[in-house]
């Protein structure tokens, strides 16, 4: 589904990614772990086409998409849930979803009814502006906005960041449901305890490179690995 090969990218003069490679197979959930500032978000932005790569290749379904603009990548079926959620404040909840649905133009299981069934809170707040939502609701809307496009691959950036533990529980349950439905996900997380139960494989980044990759269960089981890679 997604192949990233020797990717280099950065901001201004600062190189963040130094030849990063990873793959995500169809129907797979892959976690991208690592400490702050190792290039997790940069990887997602470069895959999404929001940051032009300096070198390397990105392929989606075997098709070379390196350097394509974001809207082209979105139309190839990549959904993006950014770390900052980026709900449009001038649009209501319903408008946020409707805009995404229209732009998605892709057949699939997700329609407004199913979205509201998964996130009943969004139905209650459908006429509120994006700014009037709590952090958890914004996160749900960001996920819902990506889902309604019926993506083939979901890029999910730190879905639990800054949320209260009880909200984290709720999001985790929703994600379990989604993963069970067969969605392909590349999940960026700081909190490996949140990510490893959801993912089948993990990549751990350090200084813009892959420092370790392997089955999620192996990382979850080995405290030595956790200490060495994530300093926990």
């Amino acid at each position: 589904m997604l192949e990233v090969e020797a990717l280099e990218a950065g901001y201004g003069e600062t190189r963040v990614l130094h030849g990063l490679s990873l793959t995500v197979g169809r129907g797979e959930v892959v976690a991208l772990l690592g400490r702050n500032g190792v290039g997790k978000t940069t990887t997602l932005r470069a895959v999404m086409g929001l940051l032009p790569p300096w070198a390397g290749r990105v392929r989606i379904d075997g098709r070379d998409v390196t350097g394509l603009p974001a809207h082209r990548i979105a139309r190839l079926g990549v959904g993006y849930v950014p770390e900052t959620r980026d709900i449009f404040p001038s649009l209501t909840v319903a408008e946020n979803l409707e805009l995404a649905r229209r732009l998605g133009r892709r057949e699939g299981p997700w329609d407004p009814e199913r979205i509201y069934a998964l996130f009943p809170r969004l139905r209650e707040r459908r006429d509120h502006p994006g700014t009037a939502l709590s952090g958890g609701e914004q996160q749900m809307l960001a996920i819902a906005r990506a889902l309604i496009q019926n993506p083939e691959l979901l890029l999910l950036d730190e879905p639990t960041e800054g949320l209260a533990p009880i909200v984290v529980q709720e999001i985790r349950a929703k994600l379990r449901e989604l993963i069970a439905s067969g969605l392909t996900v590349l999940l960026v997380e700081q909190n490996f305890r949140f990510a490893t139960p959801l993912a089948s494989r993990c990549y751990v980044l350090a200084r813009g490179r892959v420092a370790w990759h392997g089955p999620a269960a192996e990382l979850a089981a080995s405290e030595t690995l956790q200490r060495r890679l994530l300093a926990v």
């Binding site: 086409g49 929001l50 974001a70 990548i73 993006y80 449009f88 995404a100 732009l103």
Partner: peptide, 11 residues
């Protein structure tokens, strides 16, 4: 509001 996010949705 947010040109980058809009383009990531396909605008």
């Amino acid at each position: 509001d947010n040109a980058a996010m809009a383009s990531a949705l396909g605008v």
